[in-house]
Simulated assay, not measured.
Amino acid sequence: MSDQRLPIFPLNVVLYPGTTMPLHLFEPRYRQLLKDIREGDSRFGILTSISGVPERDLPLGRMGCVAEVTEVEMMPDGRANIVIVGRERFALDEFVPDDAPYHVAEVSFVADTPGANAVVLAVTSDDVAQNFKRVVKAVHAINGESGPLPTLPDDPSQLAWTIASMIDIDSDLRYQLLAERQPAVRLASVDAVLRKVLPDLELRAAMAQKDR
């Protein structure tokens, strides 16, 4: 059963719950979308598109994320720069007829399923956070940069999404992390990416510091 009807913006990005993203709106239909939602709750759906698939042909069940507009910079010609924050995940139920120039769909909200023991999840989460911090420190050393480490959430169910929004991963994995309903699996996937790059990054960091 559908939970809500949402304006939909199919886009070749993945927005995660609890993360922010800047967007530039230039198409007339999305300028209208922005105008309409600002008169309501400032929310619409980012639906992750598929290369080569027409927007209205995206498969039922395709995952997306509710986007809430938190900042708007309007330009004289009607274009806009906005900042959005991810809220609930949703699955596409169906596109519905509407007079709006943008897509509108019935969607169902998606929650995590029970999985790993809370203590195990917390320990795993801490390990992933430490590996991410090691990656960031190595990158800073390589680039001769300094500064504070990114702030990470305490919630293990949120951590993988926050880290994924800050690192370079392929689009398929990015989408899989959105669709995955077990936090432990999301954490393991992100940790595998971090562990793969860590040895090379820390070696390069040590060499860079030696040369200075």
Rank of each mutant, 00 (worst) to 15 (best):
M74A: 15
M74V: 13
M74N: 15
M75S: 12
M75K: 13
M75A: 13
P76S: 06
P76A: 02
P76F: 00
P76W: 01
P76H: 03
D77K: 04
D77T: 01
G78D: 08
G78V: 09
R79Y: 00
R79F: 00
A80S: 10
A80L: 02
A80I: 05
A80P: 05
A80V: 03
N81S: 02
N81G: 03
N81K: 04
I82A: 01
I82N: 02
I82K: 00
I82G: 02
I82P: 03
V83L: 07
V85M: 12
V85C: 10
V85I: 14
V85T: 15
G86V: 00
G86W: 03
G86Y: 07
R87M: 04
R87Q: 06
E88Y: 10
E88N: 13
E88D: 15
R89E: 12
R89L: 07
R89A: 06
R89P: 10
F90T: 05
F90N: 07
F90L: 05
F90H: 09
A91Y: 05
A91N: 02
L92E: 04
L92V: 03
D93V: 14
D93P: 03
D93K: 14
D93Q: 11
E94N: 08
E94D: 10
F95K: 13
F95M: 10
F95N: 11
V96N: 02
V96G: 08
V96T: 14
V96R: 11
V96Q: 04
V96F: 05
P97K: 04
P97M: 10
P97L: 04
D98V: 11
D99W: 14
D99P: 15
A100S: 15
A100E: 15
A100Q: 15
Y102K: 14
Y102C: 09
Y102S: 13
H103L: 14
H103M: 14
H103Y: 15
H103N: 13
V104A: 09
V104E: 12
V104P: 12
A105P: 04
A105K: 05
A105V: 12
E106D: 14
E106K: 15
E106T: 11
V107D: 05
V107K: 01
S108N: 06
S108P: 07
S108K: 10
S108H: 05
S108W: 03
S108F: 06
S108A: 08
F109I: 11
F109D: 12
F109H: 13
